[in-house]
């Protein structure tokens, strides 16, 4: 693998929980608890896991939309965590984000043209109202499959899929290298999901984009990703090429997740791995391996005392489990 575009090392984000009589910090939510991975240029890394496992927080920490508590983020050899002020704002030209909710992510009081062109103004790439500005906005609209006339309209006049295209055009305006896709299709109809996924794939080809694709739908991730990382309670439990992960998962949590993916064929039967109980609270995550409270193959007391580290167990497949190697 060539020099990575993005390298995350031991990323930690704890949110303080306030309470008590004096409103002091009584506890912490361990949203991201030591996440490390690398992203090669042009690659798509899928990041999957249940709600609340820290996927989105990880994505937002990379863009510094949320301040990480600890850990390193290196982008093209730059230490992202050390950037401040204007340098941090310039980071926006390299990294962008596409949001989950196409209804909440567009300013209802701005026209589509103003939304898409805002980055051009912020970074001094074009003056509002100039010919250059108009041409770029029209070009971006056409790139994402919208009509140039749409730039004079307001977000509420569009459907969910169209709005998501507007969000994509906004992210593309600065010609970024990396786009964090934070569940970009979860809020869309299945038929529209495919269109947006195909659009994202076309754009990747066209502009050589690198994606961090956050999702909880495994079949969507399998389709678009080169590699997939599975998260559970703030930690990555397994990371592998999508082919390996889907055909021979190593971690018991990955197995359980995969067995929950519906197969569109009623005659196919398979072994279902059903997990017991709920995800433990990220305020007090279990000791040792976070998954040991629900693990079907746990080995106590080893699993409840020692946290497993990610270990390579085959070509490009890494798993954090004491028992599966």
């Amino acid at each position: 693998m060539s020099e990575p575009l993005l390298r995350i090392k031991d990323l930690v984000k704890r949110f303080p929980v306030k309470g008590g009589l004096l409103g002091g910090v009584v506890d912490h939510v361990h949203a991201v608890d030591g996440v490390s991975f690398e992203l090669a240029p042009g690659e798509t890394l899928g990041l999957v896991g249940e709600s609340g496992c820290g996927k989105s927080t990880t994505g937002r920490c990379i863009l510094r939309l949320i301040e990480p508590t600890a850990g390193e983020i290196w982008f093209e050899g730059k230490d992202v965590t050390a950037l401040e002020g204007d340098a941090l704002r310039r980071l926006a030209r390299d990294m962008q984000i596409i949001f989950q909710d196409p209804y909440a992510s567009l300013n209802p009081r701005m026209t589509v043209g103003a939304i898409i062109g805002e980055a051009l103004i912020i970074h001094g790439l074009a003056k509002p109202g100039s010919k250059q500005f108009d041409e770029r906005v029209v070009q971006l609209l056409e790139t994402v499959g919208l009509h140039p006339d749409h730039r004079r309209r307001y977000p509420h006049e569009f459907s969910g899929g169209q709005r998501q295209r507007i969000g994509i055009a906004r992210a593309l305006a600065v010609s970024p290298k990396l786009i964090v896709c934070d569940e970009p299709v979860s809020a869309l109809d299945v038929s529209i999901q495919a269109q947006v996924i195909n659009l994202l794939e076309d754009l990747q080809q066209q502009f050589g984009l690198t994606y961090l694709f956050i999702a909880h739908d495994l079949s969507v991730v399998e389709h678009i990703s080169n590699r997939v990382a599975v998260m559970y309670l703030g930690r990555i439990v397994e990371i592998a090429t999508s082919k390996d992960l889907y055909t021979r998962p190593k971690h018991p949590y990955t197995e359980a997740l995969l067995s929950a993916v519906p197969i569109p064929d009623p005659t196919v039967t398979r072994k279902r791995v059903v997990l017991e109980g709920d995800v433990p609270s990220p305020i007090k995550p279990p000791t040792g391996c976070h998954f040991h409270t629900r693990c079907p193959i746990r080995d106590l007391p080893l699993c409840s005392t020692q946290a497993p580290v990610l270990k390579q167990c085959g070509d490009g497949q890494w798993v954090a489990c004491h028992l599966r190697k």
Binding site: S105, N107, V174
Partner: peptide, 12 residues
């Protein structure tokens, strides 16, 4: 999210 998007675009 649209405010977050503005921050992600580098808006002051």
């Amino acid at each position: 999210e649209f405010v977050e998007a503005a921050r992600a675009l580098g808006a002051t």
